[in-house]
Nucleic acid binder design. Sequence first.
DNA 1: ACCTTTTAGACCAAAGTGGTCAATAATTTT
DNA 2: AAAATTATTGACCACTTTGGTCTAAAAGGT
Lengths: 207, 207
Amino acid sequence: MSYTFENLEEEKQQRIINAALEEFSLQGYEKASTNRIVNQARIGKGMLFYYFNNKQELYYYLVNYCFDLLHNKYLPQINLNETDLIERYRKATVSKFSFYKEHPNVFNFLGTLMLADGDLLTEEVQEKIDHLRHVGYDLVYNNLDYSRFREDVDSEKAMELIKWAMEGYQQQVLANFKGEKMMDIDLDQLSNEFSDYLDVLKTAFYK
Amino acid sequence: MSYTFENLEEEKQQRIINAALEEFSLQGYEKASTNRIVNQARIGKGMLFYYFNNKQELYYYLVNYCFDLLHNKYLPQINLNETDLIERYRKATVSKFSFYKEHPNVFNFLGTLMLADGDLLTEEVQEKIDHLRHVGYDLVYNNLDYSRFREDVDSEKAMELIKWAMEGYQQQVLANFKGEKMMDIDLDQLSNEFSDYLDVLKTAFYK
DNA sequence: ACCTTTTAGACCAAAGTGGTCAATAATTTT
DNA sequence: AAAATTATTGACCACTTTGGTCTAAAAGGT
């Protein structure tokens, strides 16, 4: 990406980045249309290729942009010292919602990136993806205090069930977000509602 | 659709139907390519428009084909007399996997159909979709015996958590199916594994 | 031999693709 | 104020893909 782009007023940069993120998320790399991106971003066709030289460089720029944001804003919040699985979910989930509220397009783009087949991804990017997957794994399986689980159930199965329940809750909340304006999202209220579900889980699965 | 198509040998019909279902599922209506369909089905381009007159009629034929199959092979299995939520999930989930094993493309097509925005759907089709949604709702919320739940948790919240866990389990199993040949899927083994999870749920959430 | 039905794929206009470029507008430098 | 540099636009390009047509041949029936 050219330095011209970085020197643009922030608002214009964001318009372009968000238009591109949305297009790539919805359509995938191949089907994403640079025409739709420039229209959505309200810039002339030529500019996109003046800032970034071609579609692929634009894509790589976005990938790095998103990973940087993730590494700065979300990953630091994850604390593996917490040995209580459900408390870990509490913090991670709230952080996730908070990240989504601030950067919904980045969130969605990363989501599709994790699923996409990595044919056109550099090894460097593939490593970042693998690392992220690893973080997700640690979050759910590493350094946990199993003694908290009641003893009449298989704790591994309980953990899976809890994981699925948490993913389902997240999916439902995110699906509800889609219709709303980001501004209207009340993280505190959401956090309380979530807390109730976590209490039920603790009652059900812990000693 | 012309009668010519119905008089085709079954194997050829299936090749065409499956090629089209897969294309529409993966690409959505607009982006689905009739060229890819005929190549995948190994028929000449002209034939698709000889059997069905155009893309839209082909699509409607598939919609009806899938709903017919669903109404004949899956929905009859659902029994709302069972008042035990978890037992209901047992039967419904096993039936679902069984349906997927027999008709994976139909399953996926219906899945995307339920999500798609119904701009190009006739009212008749929209009604079928709504009806199916209603069945899903009844399955999870109607005619259930709440007294089975332990009394120190909010049974509504417990039901949501169980629903999410079940959906997560299904998603995981279906994701594993994607790589495999349908033939290799062992429903009995799967059913046993599933049973273990249901037992854990009962221990955790029931009296 | 003749007629009908089925088949394949070359072909069509239209639309869309990523990318270029010359003409201008805006800004900076002199 | 003039000149030089940078930023911006959109018409334009060659190319691919689109849904759909049509001719010619093959297959099947009588």
